[in-house]
Design a protein around this nucleic acid. Structure first.
Lengths: 238, 238
DNA sequence: CCGGATCCTGGATGATACTG
DNA sequence: CAGTATCATCCAGGATCCGG
């Protein structure tokens, strides 16, 4: 597929030749959340050119990563077992990229699939296992998400944007892209409420604490926006 | 940096905008092994165009991933702490790509840095922790590698190609690219000797068993070369 | 020799229009 | 809905040249 070969016998090279091209991993990321139709993918990747989406799906299918399945009304793309094997790598990349997210443009759209994967990447099974089953209902501007945390496992499902507070949810809150600042620890539970990044609609607000412990991306160290000439991030040692 | 933006607020997008361009992750991979000079990198990535290497190093430096350090005789590139944070993601990608390596061109060169990272990706701390400290000396056609396994930790160091069997090594063997087939479990210890993929030069050949248990990439399932039209790998279910 | 910068070309990417 | 077709652009790839 990758017309241009790296010409090296290596696992990483093999991986990059299969999913290293532009947009490929983002397609896999969205398919990690569940089966998606062509139009779903196009919507979840607003800026992908349609011919690129088409080409990538063909390539990923050819590589055995994606399967095309006929549906009652159209087609559906799903990951093969082989493709699902990319989960660890994609979650790891997601975690790493997360730490630099504060430098990104917060006006860029946040999609349901992208945030779903973010929660899976940020999930701390050990922290979760110490607590009882908890259901969180999150209302984003354009969609809703239900997170069920139970005994070290996490299930993320999508709910309609206008979903009424689920009666089964222990905590329901409205939020937006700034939830990333909570997961990254840039702001804590109290601050998130103060700054209106999180608005608790129902449930015990104390559960917000448990939420921040359950979903957290370790930021090895603070990263200062912009880089010095010598490429040092963080304190401007000069 | 990434002139072309994915236009999405997401950790994975952030990661890809920093290290998603061609060759970038391979540069990081080699720097994961240790500090490298421009010419080292060029040699470790035989097919990288020099202007691309130059541009990538500039971008990676700008992103705070790579640091340029003046040396007595020239420059050295190293990873920053931030850049080293990519290790998990790169090892995960390496593991995944490994499983499809049998379809790759085995005549492609294997570099010292790439195989060093492969061993780190394949390392099984749990299997290693159960055994005593073991030193393996591997002689590849163009270089040597010493693997020190001790209490669940691994240290990989490079040795000259002509290195005489280290007296401290418990097992010394000559091998080549086919060592990948051993790590992937495609052939076992006995077969590797039979087929001359491994030639024990000194030490107890039984240690080869321990080696194969210590370095192993889990292949979820066998992957057949070539993909069907429907993208199914493995048995040609038709 | 090290550490790049420059120039040119072809193929991948991106935007848009159009179709089974 | 699920793409294909067309065309402009831009970046990767390869060779060459340059300064210390």
């Amino acid at each position: 597929m990758a017309a241009r070969n790296y010409g090296q016998y290596s696992g990483l090279v093999s991986a990059l030749e299969q999913v290293g091209e532009r947009w490929a991993m983002l397609i896999v990321r969205d398919l990690l959340v569940g089966p998606r139709r062509y139009s779903d993918l196009k919507q979840g990747l607003p800026r992908i050119p349609t011919n690129i989406l088409s080409t990538r799906l063909k390539d990923l299918n050819q590589a055995g990563i994606v399967r095309r399945m006929p549906l009652a009304h159209g087609l559906v793309y799903t990951l093969t077992d082989y493709g699902r094997g990319l989960e660890d790598a994609i979650l790891a990349l997601e975690r790493w990229g997360f730490t630099a997210l504060d430098e990104a443009d917060e006006s860029d759209p946040v999609t349901a699939d992208s945030i779903s994967v973010a929660f899976r990447a940020a999930f701390r099974p050990d922290a979760a296992a110490a607590a009882f089953r908890t259901v969180y209902d999150l209302l984003f501007p354009d969609f809703g998400l239900t997170l069920v945390v139970d005994g070290g496992t996490l299930a993320v499902t999508r709910a309609p944007a206008t979903s009424p507070p689920a009666t089964s949810a222990h905590l329901v809150f409205a939020t937006d892209a700034r939830i990333h600042d909570v997961i990254s620890g840039r702001i804590d539970a109290a601050q998130s409420v103060q700054r209106a990044a999180v608005r608790v609609l129902s449930g015990d607000p104390v559960l917000l604490e448990r939420f921040t412990q359950t979903f957290r991306v370790e930021t090895a160290h603070t990263i200062a926006p912009g880089a010095e000439n010598d490429g040092v991030r963080g304190l401007s040692g000069a």
